[in-house]
Nucleic acid binder design. Sequence first.
RNA 1: AGAGGAGUGGCAGAGUGGUCGAAUGCGGCGGUCUUGAAAACCGUUGUACCGCAAGGUACCGGGGGUUCGAAUCCCUCCUCCUCUGCCA
Length: 423
Amino acid sequence: MLLVNSIRDNFEVVLEGLQKRNFTHAEAVLHQVLEIEKSRKETQLERDNLQAESNSLSKQIGMLMRDGKKAEAENIKTKTAAIKDRIKSLEESYNTYEEDLRQLLYTIPNVPHYSVVKGKSADDNEVVLEYGEIPELPEDKLPHWDLIKNYDIIDFELGTKITGAGFPVYKGRGARLQRGLINFFLDEAIKAGYNEVQPPILVNEDSGYGTGQLPDKEGQMYEATADKLYLIPTAEVPITNMYRDVILNEIEFPIKNVGYTPCFRREAGSWGAHVRGLNRLHQFDKVEIVQIVHPDHSYEALEEMSEYVQGLLQKLELPYRVLKLCGGDMGFTSSLTYDMEVYSAAQERWLEVSSVSNFESYQANRLKLRYKGDDKRTQLAHTLNGSALALPRIIAALLENNQTEEGIRMPEVLIPYLGFDII
RNA sequence: AGAGGAGUGGCAGAGUGGUCGAAUGCGGCGGUCUUGAAAACCGUUGUACCGCAAGGUACCGGGGGUUCGAAUCCCUCCUCCUCUGCCA
C-alpha cells in the first residue's frame, strides 16, 4: 500500500498516477486519507500526553505506598480515574482512525511509474519489441486442443471427472514435457543467480495481505476455509512473504529467489475460444522469479528480469513480443509491468506467458520489508517478480508452432530434459 | 489427536505487581593500546508512532481482561519442545 507521507508530500504526482490507471474518485480518496491521518495524529498527541500524566501519577502512588503514606496515595488514585476514562475513549478513536486508514489504503492501487501511459485497456499497451519468425504452418494446422487429443498427451475430460473443468491430466509425453520444462526453467534460473526455494502452496491470511491478493482479489483464490488458508494463485505470494517483517542488511541485496509451484485460480466468468484448452486453467504450473532489491536499482532489476525471460523464449525458439502495460491494464500492486506474449500460429493470436513487474515499495510497505544501510536508517525495500515461465501457454505454443506431418518437433534445448525429440 | 512444559532484545539468559525498554554474557559497531593482528580495557548497540526540538507514547509470541500501576496475575488464540497415538 501507499505511504501516507508520500501521499502528503507528493500529492499531485500520486493523484496524476492514480488517474492514469483510471482510479475513480482519486482526489477525494486521497484527501480522505490525509484527513484521517490528521485526526489520527491529533488523537495520538492527546492520548500520549494523558498517558504520560497517568504514568507519572502512578509512579507517585508507588513511591507514596512505599513510604507508607497510604492516605495521600488514595487521594491521587481518585484523580487517575477520570484520566483513565478519557484515555480509554481516545484509545478507541485512535484504533478506529488507524483501521479506517488501513482499509482505505487497501483500496488504493500503486502509483504507476512516470513513463507508464494512461490507456483504457489491453489495446492501449505499447509493443516494446517483437522477436522471432512467425512460422508458416500448413492449411490443415490444428489448435493445441485438437493436437493434445490426437497425441493423447493432455486429457481435459479425465480431469473434469476427477476434479472439474480446468484441471487437466497430463499423460505420457505430455507429463514429461511438463516436468522437463519445469526442470529447464529452474536450471536456467539457477544459472542466472537465483536461489531455488520450495515454498508451501497454501498460505495464511497475513501472507495474502502482504503481497496484495487480499482484500483485492479474495474471490479469485481457492480457500481452505476450515483452516483459513488460501491456495496460492502464484508463487509470488509465499516467496515474497518469506521476507515479511524482515529488516535486511543493505549488503544482502539483491535477493534473488526462484520457485516452482502449482498455481490455483478460480477465474470466474470467462468463456469462449480465448479460454479454450490450455489458455486458461484453474490449476497450472509456473516457475516464478522474485527479487528484493535496493530502491535505487529496482528498474535495472526489472530490465534484467525482462531480458532473462526473453532469453528463455529465445531458447525455446518461440516468436514473442514484449508489451509495456498501460495504466488501465496494469495489476493493482504494480508500478511497471512488462508482459511477454508468444505467438500461437494455429490460434493466430498472442498468448501471455509471462508478466514481469516492479512493485517498488508498495508490497514492501504492507510486508514491512525493510533494509538498513550505512546511514543506519531503516527504509522500505523494493520487490519485483516475474513468471519464468508459466507452462500451459508455452506448451500450447510449442505444440501448435512445431506441428509437422511426422509429429510435434521439440526445441533443441529441451531434448536433454525430455528424452525424446518429437511427439 | 491426547498429556505435560515453554515462548523476554541479533543469540544465550535473568527478571514473578511499581524506580524495567528490561540485569548479565556472547555477538556487532566505534575507540585506546600495537608495526599489524589477537588479548585486554573504555564506550556504544531494538522497532514503530507523535513532536521543529527537548522530549513523550507503545511494544517482553498475538488479542482481551484485572489493577492507580503488568514482562510479572487472569482469559483466549498461536507457535515451539517432550512423551503417547496416528501417518507419507
